[in-house]
Amino acid sequence: MNIGILGAGKIAGVMADTINRMTDVKLYAVGSRSWEKANAFANEFAIDKAYGSYEELVSDDAIDLVYIATPHSHHYEQMKLCIEHGRNVLCEKAFTYNAAQAEEIAGLAAKKNVYVAEAIWTRYMPYRQMINEILEFGVIGDVRTMTCNLSYPISNIERLTNPELAGGALLDVGVYGLNFIVMHMGKDISDIESSVMMHETGVDGQESITVKYRDGRMAVTTHSMYGRSDRKGIFYGEKGYMIVQNINNPQWIDVFDCEDRLIRHVDVPEQISGYEYEIMESLDMIRQGQFQSKSMPLSESIYMMKLMDDIRKGWNKK
């Protein structure tokens, strides 16, 4: 099946290298806002077709799936463009700028009968089920508290500090923390509280978010664009605790008892980059005639956008 990449930046390069190392899939085309950039990208990754506009890319009927690798400020319009041309879409996170946009995309996809999914890779990785099995089997007992964090020194990147480009820590790195919580703690949420420090440009520079559950459980996630964090996810149980190394791309899982003794170490399966899982599932769904992902259905993307909308409302930030 043929993949087309919309965008020719850093993330597009990671995906291109990943697809080129996969089987039963071909990296067929790339589209950029300039032919020169698209052509350079195509030469670097041995791609057949290079298009100097997104319109040309999505007009190519040989493409089975378009992967959108641009900043999230542009996702809404670019997904609409793909859907209008009947192209199946795998769109990078954050899916859209807000829930209203996500709902409109879901409606358009249903009307046109095309596959649309959010490419938040942690939703597709095998570690997700590995963590949930440890929790379900009660290895660390009843878990009522969980913490996670994701921060990088990225405040020098213009798109992250520019309000017009939907900048801010929440949509770029915070989306991973919130998804991690929902994947492993569920959605029976009673309340969300947050504290934020704004960047001088008016976007959120760093925040701490507390998610409270109706059954008394609690999860806390922190995000920042100013420094590197340990990126750990930790589940605290009555019989011990579990540490996930790097919630953004898990490397291993360690389980400890109440005496801080390591009782289980689980390595995450070897992978190309981690991006391959979302590609494999998308193509499987398309082959089966399905129009949504099983790991990240559109209802879940809309739900996550609503959570982030509510958080930003508390900051008086639309």
Rank of each mutant, 00 (worst) to 15 (best):
R128Y: 04
P126Q: 06
N156I: 03
T201G: 07
S155R: 10
L171Q: 13
V139L: 11
E118I: 13
M197V: 12
K187Q: 14
T161W: 00
C148N: 14
T122H: 02
V114Y: 01
N156R: 04
T201E: 04
A110P: 00
G202R: 00
F137Y: 14
T147I: 15
Y115I: 07
V196Q: 05
W121Y: 12
T147Y: 13
S195Y: 06
F180L: 09
G202K: 01
I120D: 05
M130W: 00
I157W: 05
F137T: 15
L135G: 08
S195H: 10
I192H: 08
N113R: 07
W121L: 14
H199V: 12
C148D: 13
F137M: 13
A110C: 05
M183C: 09
P153H: 03
K111Q: 11
T122C: 02
L171M: 13
S155I: 12
S155A: 15
E133S: 15
G186L: 05
I154S: 07
L160T: 06
N162L: 04
T122E: 01
T122A: 02
H184N: 13
D191R: 13
G167H: 03
N149F: 02
L165S: 09
F180C: 13
I157R: 08
K187D: 13
M183Y: 07
S151F: 01
I189Q: 12
E164K: 08
T147E: 11
L135I: 07
A169Y: 01
I192G: 09
P163D: 01
A169F: 00
G138A: 03
N149V: 12
H199A: 14
N132Q: 15
L171D: 11
S194D: 06
L160I: 10
M146R: 09
I189V: 12
F180E: 11
I189M: 10
K111P: 13
H199D: 13
N113V: 01
S151T: 15
M198N: 10
V173H: 04
K111I: 00
S195P: 05
R144C: 08
V116Q: 05
I192Y: 12
N179H: 12
F180R: 10
V143F: 06
Y127P: 00
T201A: 11
A119I: 02
E133C: 09
I192C: 12
T201L: 06
G167A: 09
D142W: 06
L150W: 01
M197C: 13
L150K: 01
V175G: 11
S151G: 15
W121D: 14
K112C: 12
V143A: 08
M198S: 06
D172M: 08
N113K: 05
K187V: 09
R159W: 10
A110N: 08
M185H: 07
F137P: 01
K112R: 15
M185E: 02
P153S: 08
Y115M: 03
L150E: 01
V182H: 12
E136N: 14
A119K: 00
D188A: 15
E164N: 11
S151P: 14
R123M: 08
F180P: 06
G141S: 01
Y152L: 15
N132M: 13
V143S: 10
Y124Q: 04
